[in-house]
């Protein structure tokens, strides 16, 4: 129910805060989404959309941290002891 899907803004339409909309590309499927909750969004941004409303602009630097962390993770840490710090 709280499913939200990432997509990329292709274009933005309207200036009125309550009715501002974007054309959003979800892996090839293009749908409209409301931008009422993320007025800062701009074309090219990746956003998370839930029931037709964008909730958040994806932070692309944060999105990569997990892969770097897993890459650096050392197997073989002792029981109950971290092998490296988890990014906050």
């Amino acid at each position: 129910m709280c499913l939200a899907v990432p997509g990329q803004i292709e274009s933005i339409h309207g200036n009125e805060p309550l009715t501002r909309m974007a054309r959003v590309n979800f892996g090839g499927v293009v749908r409209d989404a409301s931008l009422a909750f993320i007025p800062e969004a701009k074309p090219g941004d990746f956003i998370i959309v839930h029931v037709g409303c964008a909730l958040s602009v994806i932070d692309q630097a944060e999105a990569q941290k997990i892969f770097q962390w897993i890459h650096e993770m050392q197997d073989g840490a002792s029981k109950g002891r971290p092998s490296n710090e988890i990014p906050g």
């Binding site: 009422a36 007025p39 909730l55 932070d59 990014p87």
Partner: peptide, 19 residues
């Protein structure tokens, strides 16, 4: 702690919450 940091900010989405 926040694991889902690519989407979640500490203070959430103020515009959505205000509405």
């Amino acid at each position: 702690e926040i694991q889902y940091s690519r989407v979640v900010r500490q203070d959430g989405n103020a515009a959505a919450r205000t509405l």
